[in-house]
Design a binder for these strands. Sequence first.
DNA 1: TTTTTGCCTCTGG
DNA 2: CCAGAGGCAAAA
Length: 317
Amino acid sequence: MMETELPEDWNREECADSPFHLSATLASGQSFRWRRDARGIWWGAVEETVITAWQAEGQPDSPLRWQTFPEANRREFVRNYFRLDVDLPALYREWIAAEPQMAYAISAFRGLRILRQPTAECFFGFQCATCNTVLKIERTVRKLAERYGAPIPVPHSLPFPAPGPFHAFPTVATLAAADESELRADLWGYRAPRVIALAKGLQSLPEDDWLLSLRSRPYAEVHAALSALHGIGAKIADCICLFALDKDEAVPIDTHTRQIAVRLYRPDLAASSLTPRVYAALAETYRSRFGSYAGWAQQYLFFAELRRAADYLPHAE
DNA sequence: TTTTTGCCTCTGG
DNA sequence: CCAGAGGCAAAA
């Protein structure tokens, strides 16, 4: 990665007292629409805003540099999305005490945070994740945004050319009116009709923004409500709970977190198939050890498992 | 309750 | 080629 000199007008967020690991956060598989350019600058669309972000690689105590478009200097928007308010050092002390094997993941990914993603993007993005690969999920979600999302203008005069174009994630109304054959052409496969049906279902609810209203409801209730929707099982429901709805205790049990939990805590469940009962038992092993931020702890173990020996940085484009 | 099977499509063995 | 990929739901 070449050293990048950023213009002075890029905003600066100090991370000395509260670490933030930009690349680990964006590469850990919780979001699908960020891209990194050849200079190591990350570009992403969040709601109607494009965020550019840069940080010295592997230095989670160094300042986060950022800009927003088209409206500049949206500091609270950026802090809110990256959840910079969460006191990670305090959590690390609790986690290490509860599980010594967390030490490696914490040292490797110190500053990794769970994002507060826009609700619809997370809801539909993870619908794509069933039986799929991360690379293909990213391609597929990007195609959806390019076809149905509103373009977000980014000035041509930037010193660093945007790897754009950028699009807002499509609205629920747009997805409800989407054409199944177009979605299938964009690699959604058998998930295409589910996306349209889920969008129609959300649209028909009386609430103004039902998904957003779930942020203020308790985890158990939200998980049950999401799981009841056709196409959303326990795992996808937990992803939405954790990555968009402020449910920090939600622990998505997938093929990786399942292996980890079985290895560390429940070898007796090694041969059990992942029935609802087993799913709940494995998720509970995380919660009973790591507490109300078990979902965050899980992300460290998950990412360490995923990139055990590999370089976790994506290849520059 | 648990186990099995089909589902779009791409990729690594 | 074929199995599996950060599942899910229907059927047995």
